[in-house]
Design a protein around this nucleic acid. Structure first.
Length: 819
DNA sequence: TATGTGCATGGAACC
DNA sequence: GTTCCATGCACATAC
């Protein structure tokens, strides 16, 4: 069976046995973004080894994907050879709690991650860089080098550090001094941030992306000594205080160059990305408080003291190191930095690095230019992306628990890096010369901030990021749950996750349409003849599909009549394009974290084959309104999917109570109308006339009130239904009431479909229903509570009017602003 | 009027 | 809720 993953860069196939992959020249990379056995897989480029890739939970017996075993489970794996799924871990409270346990888990998971990768890597493939050194590798060269170097580094007791979304590697002897601190700090930091498990990027990503995504910087020589390492602080007092964003990222080679042939030791202290203020004319460089207090001489007076700092050219600058009182704290600044900044031709976004030369104790100042083609907005955009990822926390409880997007964050992160690093860069580092990577594309663990005032931030890269994001969304659209696999629902910290025992697969992208008749269709394009074919809605197509693959002719119809005519194709494609544009436009106006549309808008095709405006898809989703937002809790959005989770008749949730209240109003109005009608009939018999227009209008109001798709104002002012239309809507009303009376509050009815395909209800039954006294009606249908409420109403007419008004206003409000 | 100085403010990250 | 820090702003000073 061919790999279902359309993104696999190799044609290697996977052998399957009983639905489980066997290792057969398959890939040996880890799941990109997971940390649990949840549905977080991105690529099938995961472990395929029966031995190493799949485990059974020792507690519940579920088969777990090794790449998705929580890092905390790896302790268990190493110690006992068994693992527990995350649900069991939580259930059994096996999550490390103490810092020591967390550190152990993180460190062990890191080592295990490396070991497993090196051990399970398959044979080298052309183009993956392995041919350069003849070594086996299945990973992109930069990562491979890093891993190999790291592996060798481990043999010489060097360190390997992994952070949540980054792996910082160092293997040179010079870095040994930082090893322990780095490991501990990183472990602690990782767990503070929600220690992510192992993240390995897909092999199709270019090296630069990997470097960016993993927090590595390499130069073209792939020399490990030139890996840009985020070095944790060496001073004990700030070891666990200094934010990683200030950790100096300096290569060992650069350190050597600084120290030269002297016996001095260069200790990187911290670095800072210059803000607009820092690089502006004011000449004040705001220092991170922790750094200033840790590495600069203590000052007690705001005036501070002059500080001599030598730049890399040997020139000595004197800055005023001082502070301002600020909110019972201090704000440290270096004043008089303008000449130095100008001298180095630094600007916002560039990085200044502070080091100390021991034993002299001399302060050194270096800098690293951001890529010339990385604009300020890049940074801003990056920050926005970061915000997006953080905003996506609503998907889960911790970063490593994010079901889908957490891992994507890593990749998006990387893709961002791709955007930058794929361009020609003019990076220049004062220490080491050319730097092929832009600083702004890195900084994986560093908090990014917007650079420059908001008013001056440009939007030049907004489209770039959105294109990336939309493309990524398109990729997500290709992700499908594994066929014939029912997810189990796991609740973790009040968040429900769908847990699959098999990774999702990539499927060919299709267009889903809903006929006005309510029929769902899937249309896909043959990769051979490029004709659009109608497919069953539930079929999962491989990424590459042709008509000839249609073995099961009974399921996949490829007859001539199932081809979309050119006009339909045009319409569908145009609508898809419109949808994309709309997403695009929406994306421009919404924060990134709101951009991930959870709604799958589906075009509709009417009976004549003409496409119409998209309607919200009813495929495995709730009916949502146009202004739906993720997390929206309005009455429209909180209803369960059709057929799933119908509310019980005794349910007292807001939705049900609202429905009941509306029903009560409806029935009261019905009773009133009935009495009015009786009176009118009597009058008509007397006058030989039909009911008055007022009655018709009243009925119209009643009817339209049951149809949320009809604008109230329009209806009340304009809609005077014909007898046929009224009958039709009465049928609908009756049907809906019948459904409600049956005890199943189906909150997912689709008005459009109901109108287009109304169930058959005889007028006789309707009249019988209508003629029933309300109390009898309610009793028959087990709605005595409503009866009680109804009896409590002292003035039905006034109450009806008020409730009707409230109803309308409430419904208006829902339609106007469902939030 | 331009520039420098000191502090305040508010967004964002952190705890 | 607290802290950090990028930046705004009022005032002072220089030109």
């Amino acid at each position: 069976m061919e790999c279902m993953n359309g993104l696999c860069a190799s044609s290697n196939s996977i052998e399957w046995e009983n639905g489980w992959p066997l290792q057969s020249g398959g890939f040996a990379t880890l799941c990109l973004n997971c940390g649990s056995a949840y549905k977080q897989f991105v690529f099938c480029e995961t472990f395929h080894s029966e031995e190493t890739g799949w485990r059974e939970c020792t507690s519940c017996g579920k088969r777990l994907h090794c790449g998705c075993i929580a890092s905390t489970s790896l302790l268990e794996l190493l110690e006992t050879g068994g693992v527990s799924c995350k649900a069991c871990i939580i259930k059994n409270s096996k999550i490390p709690s103490t810092p020591k346990e967390k550190h152990q888990a993180c460190a062990l998971s890191t080592e295990n991650f490396i070991d497993q990768n090196l051990e399970t890597m398959g044979p080298a493939q052309p183009g993956d860089g392995a041919e350069n050194d003849g070594q086996e590798q299945r990973l992109p060269p930069s990562l491979n080098n890093a891993l190999q170097e790291s592996n060798s580094a481990k043999r010489v007791n060097e360190s390997l550090v992994q952070t949540n979304l980054s792996i910082s590697l160092s293997a040179s002897s010079n870095s040994g001094v930082f090893a322990e601190e780095r490991q501990l700090s990183t472990a602690v930091s990782s767990f503070q941030q929600g220690c992510g498990p192992r993240h390995l990027l897909p092999r199709l990503l270019p090296n630069s992306i990997l470097s960016a995504g993993l927090g590595l910087e390499t130069n073209s020589s792939n020399n490990i000594s030139q890996l840009r390492v985020a070095r944790p602080p060496v001073e004990g007092r700030v070891k666990n205080q200094l934010l990683p964003r200030y950790w100096p990222r300096i290569t060992d080679q650069e350190l050597k160059q600084i120290s030269g042939d002297s016996n001095s030791t260069i200790i990187p202290l911290f670095e800072k990305v210059l803000s607009a203020s820092d690089a502006g004319r004011i000449g004040r460089l705001v220092l991170p408080k922790a750094c200033a207090e840790a590495y600069f001489p203590p000052i007690s007076q705001p005036e501070g003291l002059p500080l001599r700092i030598q730049d890399v050219r040997g020139k000595e600058w004197v800055f005023q190191f001082r502070f301002w009182p600020n909110n019972n704290s201090r704000m440290y600044v270096l004043e008089g930095v303008t000449p130095c900044i100008h001298s180095m031709q630094l600007q916002a976004g560039d990085t200044v690095t502070f080091s100390r030369m021991d034993p002299e104790g001399k302060l050194l100042m270096g800098f690293r230019k951001a890529s010339n083609n990385v604009s300020v907005q890049k940074d801003s955009h990056y920050s926005m992306n970061n915000g997006a990822f953080q905003g996506e926390r609503f998907f889960g409880n911790a970063e490593n628990n994010l079901p889908i997007m957490s891992g994507y964050s890593g990749l998006l992160h990387s893709l961002k890096g791709s955007k930058n690093s794929s361009m020609p860069t003019l990076s220049k580092h004062v220490y080491a010369g050319d730097n092929p990577l832009s600083e702004s594309s890195l900084l994986p663990e560093r908090k990014r901030r917007n650079i420059g005032p908001k008013s001056k931030r440009l939007l030049i890269d907004g489209h770039d990021s959105l294109e990336i994001r939309i493309s990524w969304e398109e990729v997500q659209d290709m992700l499908r749950a594994p066929p014939s696999v029912e997810p189990s629902i796991v609740s973790v910290e009040d968040h429900e996750f769908e847990e699959f025992e098999e990774p999702p697969v990539f499927a060919k992208r299709s267009i889903f349409v809903v006929r006005l008749s309510g029929e769902h269709e899937q249309w896909t394009q043959c990769d051979d003849c490029f004709k659009w074919r109608k497919m069953p809605i539930d079929i999962l197509l491989p990424p590459k599909w042709t008509c000839q693959d249609n073995i099961d002719q009974t399921r996949c119809s490829c007859s001539a009549q199932d081809e979309l005519c050119s006009s339909e194709i045009e319409n569908l494609l145009k609508m898809n394009e419109d949808l994309t544009k709309r997403r695009f436009q929406t994306s421009l106006n919404k924060p990134m974290y709101e951009n991930k549309s959870q709604d799958q808008e589906t075009p509709t095709i009417n009976a004549g084959g003409e496409t119409s405006q998209p309607v919200t898809s009813s495929i495995a989703t709730t009916t949502k309104h146009p202004r739906h937002r993720p997390g929206c809790s309005c009455i429209v959005c909180i209803q369960p999917p059709s057929g799933k989770g119908k509310h019980k008749p005794t349910c007292t949730c807001n939705v049900c109570m609202t429905v009941k209240r509306r029903f009560k109003t409806l029935m009261m109005r019905k009773k009133k109308r009935q009495s009015d009608r009786e009176a009118e009939i009597i009058m008509a018999q007397r006058n030989n006339q039909f009911p008055t227009s007022a009655s018709a209008k009243d009925e119209a109001e009643v009817d339209h009130s049951t149809n949320p798709n009809i604008n109230n104002t329009q209806v009340s002012l304009q809609f005077v239904p014909s007898d046929d239309a009224r009958r039709s809507e009465t049928d609908i009303l009756s049907t809906r009431n019948s459904e409600i009376f049956k005890g199943g509050l189906d909150l997912n009815s689709c008005p459009v479909r109901e109108i287009t395909a109304p169930p058959r209800v005889s007028m006789t039954s309707l009249l019988l229903e209508a003629s029933l006294p309300l109390d009898t009606y309610l009793k028959q249908n087990g709605l005595t509570s409503l009866l009680t409420e109804q009896q409590a109403v002292s003035s039905p007419r006034v109450e009806n009017m008020e409730e009707h008004s409230n109803d309308l206003s409430e419904k208006d409000q829902i339609e106007k602003d469902p939030l």
